[in-house]
Design a protein around this nucleic acid. Structure first.
Lengths: 196, 196
DNA sequence: TACGAAACCGCACGAGCGTTCTATTTTCTC
DNA sequence: GAGAAAATAGAACGCTCGTGCGGTTTCGTA
């Protein structure tokens, strides 16, 4: 029971990186087994279906995201600093977590927005939870008096998400060297607007 | 030579809709042929490779987008009205063009951001051209005096793109009924900021 | 150290993929 | 309306996919 857990972890780790490049649908048990020097059937036995594999990869990445982005950000002082910490960690997360294809939640969200099933359900839950978390951070910024009272936290979360998606697009597809600079400018503008 | 053109057009039309749901990689010659009551080989003969099919679907959609979104928007009065027209048409384009899976450029951009080849090259060109077009519209708004002189047109294009991506995400994945409302609010905020 | 359980392998399967070849039907042109 | 050219069909290929099965190796524990 010990060894199995370990290799399953290894598999999920590698699968997340692979999926960031080719997507969760593009994930292939054969390729995965090859990369990890396992037999196809040996690897398959850990999950018993491809769908289960996809779901577990998502769960794994969700836990990882919470560890690497959310929790540390929430450790920052309440209010605007916390929002800034979140932004910074969010931006660095694909690199830090060894996702060579960029944030693979972006890929998964687009891939499954039209394909019902447990994978889609899980993605929706994860993304909603995350957007809620952003909104909560913004709300505390209002409570702390950093942001003005009229600010709509959900709207800010929405717009921040848009900034990150545009950044992902500019950086990964367009290879625009100014992508980060633009994302930062947009973020500062968003914060300034909320503060004023 | 006439008939072939017609069915090829039909194929591309249907393929674009299909690809909006399953992606350009998920596109399958067999499924496509089935849907259109053609033989696999008969359909295949029109393109002679799947890659060529993908590229032609992209070209087709690009032309369509220019017809349905860009050109009509550019017919609006210079400046802010033109930007508004662009926003409105852009928002309606997946529905108007029979893309049941939402804007399939979003799907394609994410799918190919890491897979070199002619398809990726074409997507990059199309997206760059479009972002340039937005920036140009913003620039004319500055020239017309609708927007203030300090506005960075490229930055505005970047942020508008982000708003649309967030909208796509909220509407399609999260099925958020307020998605459009939020997109509109973000757009108004963007315009107000540029105007002030 | 022995033994039961867990982990893993090799092999095979049926299905679907993109692609090729040859033959047949349909379309266009003079 | 005949004949060339184009469009389509049918069958087959080699490959890869996810999945199932039976046996072998490795591990964890008593």
């Amino acid at each position: 029971m010990r060894k199995g857990e370990a290799t399953r972890h290894e598999i999920l780790e590698h699968a997340a990186g692979l999926a960031s490049r080719v997507g969760l649908e593009g994930l292939t048990i054969g390729k995965l087994a090859d990369d990890l020097d396992l037999s196809k059937s040996g690897l398959f036995a850990h999950f018993r279906s491809k769908e289960a594999l996809q779901v577990q990869v998502l769960e794994h990445a969700g836990r990882r995201f919470a560890e690497v982005v959310l929790s540390p950000a929430l450790a920052a002082p309440r209010g605007e600093p916390r929002l800034r910490a979140l932004f910074e960690r969010w931006r660095r997360w694909p690199k830090e977590s060894g996702l060579p294809g960029g944030c693979f939640f972006v890929q998964a969200a687009v891939e499954f927005d039209d394909q019902p099933g447990p994978a889609r359900d899980l993605i929706v839950r994860l993304q909603k939870d995350f957007l809620d978390a952003i909104a909560t951070v913004v709300r505390t910024a209002v409570e702390e008096g950093h942001f003005r009272a009229g600010v709509d936290p959900v709207q800010v979360a929405y717009e921040l998400h848009g900034i990150m998606l545009a950044w992902h697009h500019a950086a990964r597809l367009l290879r625009d060297p100014k992508a980060e600079e633009r994302a930062r400018a947009a973020f500062e503008s968003l914060v300034a607007r909320a503060r004023r």
